[in-house]
């Protein structure tokens, strides 16, 4: 079967040596195993993230994503744009849909894009990598490369906000999406399906500006996973991963807790189940070592 090709938008946090550098390594491995080719969009720019609104108005934010979409259309005609970051996906998809629906908005965006020598037709679709896995490849294809089922690993699936709302994955509910648990199960691990903090907000960008308030959210997310007997938390989101992993030691310092629960990406579980090494799974990038997963990788 021919390789599936996509215009790839990595986004700021998944660049080399950025905070989700390790995530991208595991995505590479998953793509290799599943015969997916991600073609990086040349000279892509930041999506504006959720926090861009303070200083950037509506159109300035929309044109940021419009530029990426235009570059994808021009350089990878016919390919869907794919992001691995929920915030990138959200911004790109919102822009793509709005540009597709409104000719006047598209005209305004193009007036601005002209300054950067670009033009958007408004035909390209913006999708999330999880959609590629579930919709384009399917569960059987995801399962096929499994050579090391993650037996005995108890995993709390933490979906978070922006992979789930406002768009979400087709066919899933906002209150209780099930695909992440199903991915965990497909890799041979045990999903803790009753984990109740699945879609709780980690505080997002406010972890930086309102640390105390966000850390309360994070503490709930981690403690509930412990209550269910989790060995680790798995998430599809870079900001969730960073916030929930990084601040555990801060919370311990301030509140005398002993939180020390690894937080990994779904693609890291997949890489190990597909027989990849700890390094290929990017497990060397964890602040809290995912020892059980490393153990399986080195078996």
């Amino acid at each position: 079967m021919a390789k599936k090709q996509y215009a790839f938008y990595p986004g700021c946090s998944s660049q080399k040596k950025a905070s989700a550098d390790n995530f991208l390594r595991s995505i590479d491995k998953v793509c290799e195993k599943l015969d997916v080719q991600l073609n990086e969009i040349p000279d892509w720019n930041c999506c504006g993230a959720s926090i861009g609104y303070g200083e950037g108005g509506e159109l300035p934010r929309l044109v940021l994503s419009a530029r990426n979409l235009a570059l994808a259309e021009q350089n990878m005609p016919g390919q869907d744009m794919v992001s691995v970051c929920p915030a990138c996906w959200l911004a790109s998809r919102e822009t793509a849909e709005r540009m597709h629906e409104s000719q006047s908005l598209l005209a305004e965006a193009n007036e601005a894009l002209k300054e950067a020598g670009l033009n958007l037709k408004g035909e390209v679709k913006a999708r999330h990598f999880v959609e590629v896995l579930i919709e384009d490849l399917g569960w059987d294809a995801m399962k096929a490369p499994v050579v090391k089922p993650l037996e005995g690993l108890k995993v709390a699936g933490y979906v978070g906000c922006q992979t789930n709302r406002p768009f979400g994955i087709a066919g899933e509910s906002f209150e209780n999406p099930k695909y992440l648990d199903k991915m965990v199960e497909t890799m041979g691990a045990e999903p803790l399906t009753r984990y109740e903090q699945k879609v709780t907000c980690c505080g997002g960008a406010l972890a930086f500006s309102e640390p105390e308030k966000a850390q309360k959210q994070i503490r709930d997310i981690v403690e509930s996973a412990y209550d269910h007997g989790a060995d680790m938390i798995v998430t599809p989101c870079q900001l969730c991963q960073a916030n929930v992993e990084i601040y555990q030691s801060e919370i311990n310092k301030k509140q005398g807790t002993k939180l020390n629960l690894p937080v990994v990406y779904y693609s890291q579980l997949m890489t190990v189940a597909y027989g990849g090494s700890a390094k290929e799974a990017g497990l060397d990038g964890q602040l809290i070592k995912a020892e059980k997963l490393e153990g399986i990788a080195s078996k």
Binding site: Q15, C46, I51, G52, G54, E55, G56, A205, S209
Partner: peptide, 17 residues
Amino acid sequence: TREIAKLFWDSLVKTGR
């Protein structure tokens, strides 16, 4: 949050990323 939003945008406009 107003402060970080501004810092974020300034950082973005300077380099595009």
